[in-house]
Every structure is written in structure tokens, then in C-alpha cells.
Design a protein around this nucleic acid. Structure first.
Ligand SMILES: [Mn+2]
Ligand SMILES: [Mn+2]
Ligand SMILES: [Zn+2]
Ligand SMILES: [Zn+2]
Lengths: 150, 150
DNA sequence: TCACTAATGCAACATTGTAGCATTTCAGCG
DNA sequence: CGCTGAAATGCTACAATGTTGCATTAGTGA
């Protein structure tokens, strides 16, 4: 019998097809790259990986591919410190989880387990609909590396 | 006797001088504009106000002036949704207070009374140093305007 | 008033992203 | 399979935001 397929087990091709989109080499490669990465990737990071994989593409196509993935809920976007977006696989539900930004290596990772506290009392009149929470500090990798250096 | 002067009562000129900087028309005007505004201002907003005040200036000078004010702790920066910085008067201590971003009018305001919860338990290995908290939703002005429309 | 140097203005450049439009390629169909 | 129409791509040009280098101007203290 076919085991029930968790979303995380679905192939990139199946995920793309399920959205009613065409399966193209750029979409396949980009979604694969995002799903394989432990941290958020910038447009530039992804372009570099595509180059390494010999997946020819145009700058604009990559922007459009990323937009499409976000629209479809196959990826989500986090604003980086350098006014460039970072991308992660998976849907975010508009800021449903917090993110961690390492000031040493610059990596941004999703903290799926932490959701911003929506119940905070704001001053009168403010109607919050969602909250973005971004921690800054040192990530586990950089902490370990620092300990080894010492 | 001279009443003790609160920082908020100091003139822009005195604040600038206290930092050891020269008092120039651009610095005076920009700091004044920031201190008079109830919400964050983009580079472009400030340029428009300078124009209205007939304070001639160069684009680059304004960028440098804003950088300097932030360096000196006379202003702080918040990243907007459109990858353009917004500026507020006053020191922020690296994310010491939360901000509210109105999705209707685009205004960003400081919520001085709300500080991100630093005590949240992060996954093992993460060393947070500060947290940024940004609420999105409808601001009091837009809520009121909407109620009047109905 | 003078001299020193911080601050400015200008031109050129960098980065990140968008818009329009002709061309290619995917997916469904006979 | 080979066609065909629409979706996706590639290219060029453009826009927004910010930075760098360097010559000139103008605050400041003497
Ligand atoms: Mn995330
Ligand atoms: Mn603030
Ligand atoms: Zn790190
Ligand atoms: Zn508003």
C-alpha cells in the first residue's frame, strides 16, 4: 500500500504540480535548493547555487520564480538586514513564526517553535493583525566555532 | 535658577553640539523634522519637508546626515516594508522598543511602552542579544477614518 | 579676520528589484 | 508521437535606494 505522503516528503515536482504550475527546471531547482537549506537564502545565494548546478537562468526569471513560490505558499520571505529578501521553503502564514538572525555569519533561520505573542496590550486604537519577531545574536554554529577558537 | 533641562526640551542645536558635531542647517532642520513627527520618516519624506522649508540640500548629504544622527544616538532607524529605512528621533538601544506598521497608511510608529520579551526560550545553542518586534495592522487614525466612512 | 578641517555638493557607481515584449517551452490533445 | 495555445522565460530598459571619491564650502576656535 502507498504510505501517506507528508508534505515534507513530496517531491518538488509534485508540490509545483499541485499548485497548477508548470514544472520547469528553474522552479524544480530553486524549490529543491530552498528545501535543502538549513537557513534562509537570498536571491544572490540561490543564483550562485543555480550556477554551480549548471541551471542556466536569467536574473528576472529567478525573481519571478521566487515570487511565484511565495504566492503559492511553497516558500516564504523574510526581510534581511541589508534590504534584500531571504527565502525559505514552506508557508509562513504571515509571520506565524519567529526568526533568528546571526550577527556573526549573517544567516537567518526560522524558529518554527516560537510564535510572536499576539496578546500584548497595545496603546488604545491600535489593531494589530500580526506580529513579526526577529531575534539577533549568535547562532549555534558560530557559538561552537567561537568556543573552539578559544 | 535655570530649570533642569530634560533631553526632550533641549534644542536641536544643543543636542548636536553635545555630540561634538558642527551645527549646520541640514542637521538642524533634519533633527527638528524628526522630533516634530509623530511617526517614522523615510529619506524621501524628509527630503520633501526640507524642500518645503527651503532648506537646500543634496541627496547624499541627507543620507550622511541621517547616518550621523543615528551614530550619535540622536535618531534611530527602522527597516520599512519597501526596503527603505525609516527614521525617528531618539536613541533606540538596538531594538529596545517595539514598532507598529499600519498596513493602510504605511506609517510606522514607535511603541515605546512595549519591549520585546527577551526571556523566550530559544532552541539550544542560540544566544539572542536583542529582539525586534514589529506589529502590523491598522493604526488609530486609520481605524477612526474607517469608522467615519461607515 | 584667519586657518583648519568637518561637512557639503556633485558625478559616477552599486545593488536590488520591476516592466514590457518578443521568444521559447511545457502540457494537454488528437 | 507531433501540434498548439498559454505559461514561463530571456532580454533590455528602467526605477528606487543607497554608497564612494574627490574637489569645494563653510563652521569653529584662535
Ligand atoms: Mn520562516
Ligand atoms: Mn522606534
Ligand atoms: Zn552564525
Ligand atoms: Zn494608518
Amino acid at each position: 500500500m502507498p504510505a501517506p505522503t507528508l508534505p515534507s516528503e513530496q517531491s518538488a515536482a509534485a508540490l509545483i504540480a499541485a499548485c497548477g504550475g508548470r514544472i520547469t527546471r528553474t522552479r524544480l531547482a530553486v524549490l529543491g535548493i530552498l528545501r535543502d537549506s538549513a537557513h534562509s537564502l537570498s536571491h544572490d545565494d540561490i543564483a550562485a547555487q543555480l550556477l554551480a548546478l549548471d541551471v542556466h537562468h536569467d536574473r528576472v526569471t529567478l525573481y519571478r520564480t521566487l515570487d511565484w513560490l511565495v504566492e503559492q505558499g511553497l516558500a516564504h520571505r523574510v526581510s534581511g538586514p541589508d534590504r534584500a529578501w531571504r527565502f525559505n521553503s514552506g508557508r509562513d502564514n504571515a509571520g506565524a513564526h519567529a526568526h533568528f538572525h546571526c550577527d556573526r555569519c549573517g544567516h537567518i533561520v526560522c524558529l518554527e517553535s516560537i510564535r510572536p505573542d499576539e496578546s500584548l496590550a497595545l496603546p488604545a486604537g491600535y489593531r494589530p493583525e500580526r506580529a513579526e519577531l526577529v531575534f539577533h545574536g549568535t547562532c549555534p554554529d558560530c557559538g561552537r566555532r567561537r568556543a573552539e577558537d578559544a
